[in-house]
């Protein structure tokens, strides 16, 4: 590791002042599951690392606003998985958070960090996108709020400017009935980075929203307002046609995790599956109550094992 100074400010204004002073020389540290790796492999060489975990305004809390839930910048994945309000209202986010690394990782990695790292394959991004998440940003110059869709720019790039940090993520509650599901394709069943990931949300009014990751420079949204996708009477062929149209936005590349061709083909396969799950959930009154812990539910039942709780 290249030497750096570590500091652990107690207030947000201290953090903002430090960020203002050091600019590009400063790195923010929350969970550290990405940053410490980058420090060790020397791909990042800050002069100062600002640990925000003791900042009183950034305490790891999930609060309630008039519009929905507010997830503080230091809330870790394990807390997202456990929170009963998130489980009830944003189950696909729980499913996504449960796939981020191992339990040891999820005990450290923050939701905000996952977003700020802006990996095209970030597992929580598709769920946050379909739920219409908004990002609260602060700097010495003031605060602003952007939608998550506006927040992502490209691989590792966000709209955050020099001196800005994310203080929280807002999740607005739905005004109509909806159901969503998160799914992804990996090379193995245990901890893995996604070859592709996606989230599908179906609303009672018929609107269907997908968000995709690992198939473009940034996670993106694709929406169908025709109502056809959510219509149980629509034919598979008709649905496929719409899905194919939505998927033209995807620009997958070939890398060690998969080829462009495979990713393209899997987008359609996984979209169909996610759509079916979301529709089933919408029709199932007992839902929402997502299964926990990334149970191995991506496979059609190899005789009797690994399946999580019902849903």
């Amino acid at each position: 590791m290249h030497p750096f100074a570590y500091t652990r400010p107690a207030t947000l204004s201290d953090v903002l002042a430090l960020l203002d002073k050091h600019g590009g020389e400063a790195c923010l540290l929350a969970g550290g599951t990405d940053l410490v790796v980058e420090l060790r492999n020397r791909s990042r060489r800050p002069s100062i690392v600002i640990d925000i975990k003791q900042v009183k305004e950034l305490a790891p809390t999930i609060g309630e606003t008039e519009r929905g839930l507010r997830i503080g910048a230091t809330v870790v994945m394990a807390d997202i998985e456990k929170d009963s309000r998130i489980r009830r209202h944003f189950p696909a986010l729980v499913e996504a958070a449960a796939t981020v690394g191992s339990i040891q990782i999820r005990n450290r990695a923050t939701l905000t960090g996952n977003i700020c790292h802006a990996s095209p394959a970030a597992d929580t991004a598709p769920a946050l996108l379909v739920y219409g998440a908004e990002v609260n940003v602060a700097s010495v110059r003031g605060t602003r709020r952007v939608t998550l869709d506006q927040f992502f720019v490209g691989p590792g790039k966000t709209v955050l400017k020099r001196g800005e940090l994310v203080t929280s993520i807002d999740l607005p509650l739905a005004d109509n009935r909806r159901a969503a599901t998160f799914t992804r394709l990996t090379r193995r069943r245990g901890v893995d980075l996604a070859t592709i990931n996606l989230c599908c949300k179906v609303e009672a009014g018929g609107r269907t929203t997908f968000a995709y990751g690992a198939v473009g420079p940034r996670p993106f949204l694709a929406t169908d307002d025709s109502g056809m996708l959510a219509d149980p009477r629509a034919s598979d062929a008709a649905k496929d046609e719409i899905l194919r149209r939505l998927l033209t936005k995807a620009t997958p590349i070939s890398d060690v995790r998969g080829s462009r061709e495979y990713r393209r083909a899997m987008l359609l396969v996984m979209s169909r599956r996610a759509l079916r799950t979301a529709i089933d959930r919408l029709q199932d009154d007992r839902f929402p109550s997502p299964s926990t812990g990334g149970q191995d539910d991506r496979f059609p039942s190899p005789s009797g094992g690994g399946k999580g709780g019902g849903a």
Partner: peptide, 12 residues
Amino acid sequence: RSVNSCLVLAAE
């Protein structure tokens, strides 16, 4: 809480 100690700074 279980963590990977390779990803935690001593100062933290």
